[in-house]
Structures are given as structure tokens and as C-alpha cells.
Write a protein that binds this DNA or RNA. Structure first.
Lengths: 234, 234
DNA sequence: ATGACCAGATTGGTTAACCAGTTATTCTCC
DNA sequence: GGAGAATAACTGGTTAACCAATCTGGTCAT
């Protein structure tokens, strides 16, 4: 059995993939009931001829997806899912490809259009203050002719926070940096559009402040128009 | 310095929070440039009076969000983000609350309505076969009067895969199990609605097969109507 | 002066021993 | 024979020593 250390398509080392699939097979072979206890890490390590650390990594991965739950000094338990569901999820996790840039941008736009609607509907006074402060920072930095990518990011994150949906906020946090760090590479963000972005931002702010979700979405869409074209017209 | 082991609001142990915030402070104090190398794990551990393992955990967390990047036998580097952006992101990560059930459901519906549109537009023959097989499984299991929560989940995951957007698929994978495992607790999924769900599913399948994104979205929305009411009418 | 090169220090990653709880077992006493 | 307590075995988590790749600084031949 080769266990190369090269990273796979979805960021999982192939050794980790192997272990995860073995755990899946074990769950199937033994007809595990939901909530049942997995064999101990040591036993699994011995059975699969890998180190215990590798087992722990694999378990941690599946724990991130909510499929397993480790209890200190007690054991690792499969979550309350049917075995067939567990199987399907693990299969998808194993074959999940690394998102390409277009997928990321597509997802980001889509997330933000919803987030800004929620923000317009649910924001508090403090949220509004933070958004406006972020926009002020972006404005001054941009007008000074300096690079304002960071301030732009913070503006959008402030809106995400104001959406009062922790789940959406987290998704936003997890996909944004990947996009930002690839921006230059893909030449998506033109510097000369930064000035006009100030006004676009302020239109969004105005719509949020006046609590008009639909308008906020439209204005955000305008702001994303360049990115949008990149996604759907190439 | 208290370092309780109790999990914080966002699933981060307070010790981890402390370390992450210290790392942030360090990056600020030393005016780190994008891409610069962080002090070694040993040095950080000594400086913060914690074990090296704790440092490694914190770094791993920030790596998940794409803010740091560990290079074997070389060092840990901050990603190519402005320091202000780094700061804002870390602050949000530290204060991110655990998503409540309503946030999760809200997000799931929203994701699926987009996913089904993409699936209708982009699915391949294999995708379609998998979706229809999943639906068949759901149908037979439900008609047999057995519990079909797992088959329902797999049906929706098959559609997510057919969206051909790895980013969306991953988001879907990461929020679904949390919802499923809380279903019973919140009594959202009534057993007696399962039969009618068969037809709703098949309407969705039909819309996907005939490549009508808008219709697919409508049909999916119908399918989620009960959940939707739970979200927005309580 | 310059470039190739080598040894030692430093790095993140890995391993194995250890720890504090939990759980199963056995032994005792009624 | 059965309930309760002591105990041994086992659990995931933690720690410290170890590893191999890498980086650094100086040295030496050119």
C-alpha cells in the first residue's frame, strides 16, 4: 500500500484519505449503529499499520464535518446519522475537489447578496457604526491613492457581521481570504475601479441604513458587476 | 492568567483564543509585512508560557482560515494580506458565535435554492443518474414506512454535487450534518410529511432534468416551505 | 572579489511515553 | 446470589524527545 504524502485534490493527504476510507469501511463492515463507539485510536492504528497521530488527524477531519465526536478519556463516537448517510457524506468528502477561483467568486457574490439583505433588515446601531467606520476608512485610504484592498475586505466583513447569521458570517470568513490572496494572480480587481467603488459602497451603506433589503441587494450587485461579468460572461 | 478549558461560544477553547489574540498582537507590534515569517513555534510557546502543542493548534486554526501557512522545516508565514485585514479577520474569528439552529436552517435553504439552479444548468448525465438513484432510494424507503432521513440527505447532497461548484458543495457538506443531528431535538421534520416530500422531490428532479433552473428553484422552495415557515414566521 | 560548498543551528513534523479521567471487571461482604 | 466497592485496564489528550529537511554563515578554492 502506497501512502504518498502528496496532497490530493481537496487538500487531504492521500494517507489521510486512505485512513478515512478505511474507517468508513469499518463502520460498514461492523454495521455500526448511530452513536456507537469507534475502536480506540491505538487499535485502529495497529489495524491499519499507521501511526496513532495519523488516525487522530483523520478523526479530527471527520469531526470537523460533524460525523464523529471524540470524548476525552472515553472514546470516539459516530454521530447520530444513519449509516447510509454517513457513507454518502464520507464519499463526497473524499472526492470533493479543490474549489477553483471561479467557484469561489461565484459563491462569494451569492453569499454577499443575501448577507446584505439580512444586514439591511437586522442591523443594530453598533453594526451600522462599524459599517460606516469601515467605509470611511476605505474612502480615505482610496482617495489618498493607497492600496485599499484590506479596507474593502473589512467593509464587507462588517456587513457580514451585521447580518446576524453566524453561519453565513462563518462561510464568508472561510472563503474570502482565498479570494483575496488570488486577486492579483487573476487580475480581477483593477485598481482604477477603486474610486468608483467608493460611491458603490456608499450606495450600499445608504440602503442598509434605511433598512431597504431589496435595494441593498441591487446596490451590492452593482458593486459586484465587474466580478459578476468575470463569472458569467467568460 | 486563567486558561480555562471550557469551550467558548464559537467552539474555540479559551486557551486557543488567548493564543490567537496574542499572535495577532505580536503581528501588530512588530509591524509584520505580508508574507513575513512568524517566530518559531518553540519561541512562541516560551514567550506565551504555553506548550508548543497549544501553539500548533492555534496556528492550525488560523491556517484553516487561510491567514497563516506552515512550511515544513522552514517556518510559518503570514499570508499575503495587509496587516489591517489580518487584524479584522482574526477579530471576527475570535468573536464569531456558534450558529444557532435558525441560522443554520436559514443558510441551508438559501444555499440549496442556489445549488439547485446550478444543478439544473450544469448537471451531466452521471449527475442526473445519481440524483435519480438517490430519489428512488428515498421513495422506496419512505413508501415502506421506514425512516428515510438519510436518503433525503443523500438526495440533496447529490444535487449539490451536480451544481459543479466545489465551494458551494463544501459549504453544504459542512452545515448539513449539524442540522440533521438537531432535527429531532427541534421537531422540525414531521414524519407525516415524508410521503408528500416524495412528490416534491420528483418535481425538483423533473425541473433539473429538463434544465430549467428557475423552475427547479421554485420546486425546491416548495419542498422547503415547512422549514421556511419555521425560519421566517416564528 | 566571487561563487561553490560544507557544517552547525533552526525549522515544522513525527513519534513514543505519560497523564488524568472513564469504564469494565473482579472481589467482598451481606 | 446479588449489590457495592475496590481495582485493573483502557480511553483520548498532552508532553517532551526525536527526525529530516532547510536555512545560515563562514570558508576555501578559483
Amino acid at each position: 500500500m502506497r501512502t504518498e504524502d502528496i496532497k490530493g485534490m481537496n487538500g487531504l493527504a492521500s494517507k489521510e484519505k486512505f485512513i478515512i476510507s478505511e474507517i468508513r469501511d469499518l463502520i460498514n463492515a461492523k454495521n455500526f449503529e448511530p452513536g456507537e463507539k469507534l475502536p480506540s485510536e491505538r487499535l485502529l492504528a495497529e489495524k491499519l499499520n499507521v501511526t496513532r497521530g495519523s488516525i487522530r488527524n483523520a478523526i479530527q477531519k471527520l469531526e470537523q464535518y460533524g460525523l464523529l465526536k471524540s470524548m476525552p478519556q472515553s472514546g470516539t463516537f459516530v454521530s447520530d446519522l444513519e449509516r447510509t448517510a454517513l457513507n454518502g457524506m464520507i464519499d463526497q468528502i473524499l472526492t470533493l475537489p479543490t474549489p477553483d477561483f471561479k467557484s469561489l467568486v461565484e459563491t462569494r457574490i451569492f453569499l454577499e447578496l443575501k448577507i446584505v439583505k439580512f444586514a439591511a433588515a437586522r442591523h443594530t446601531e453598533e453594526d451600522m457604526a462599524e459599517i460606516e467606520q469601515a467605509q470611511l476608512n476605505y474612502r480615505t485610504k482610496t482617495l489618498a491613492g493607497e492600496d485599499s484592498v484590506a479596507e474593502d475586505l473589512l467593509f464587507h466583513l462588517a456587513i457580514a457581521k451585521a447580518s446576524h447569521n453566524a453561519s453565513l458570517q462563518r462561510l464568508m470568513l472561510s472563503i474570502t481570504p482565498q479570494i483575496i490572496t488570488n486577486f492579483e494572480k487573476y487580475h480581477v480587481c483593477k485598481n482604477n475601479t477603486a474610486i468608483s467603488a467608493i460611491e458603490e459602497h456608499e450606495e450600499v451603506v445608504k440602503a442598509i441604513r434605511t433598512k431597504r433589503p431589496e435595494l441593498a441587494e441591487v446596490k451590492m450587485k452593482d458593486h459586484f458587476s465587474v466580478l459578476y461579468q468575470y463569472c458569467y460572461e467568460t
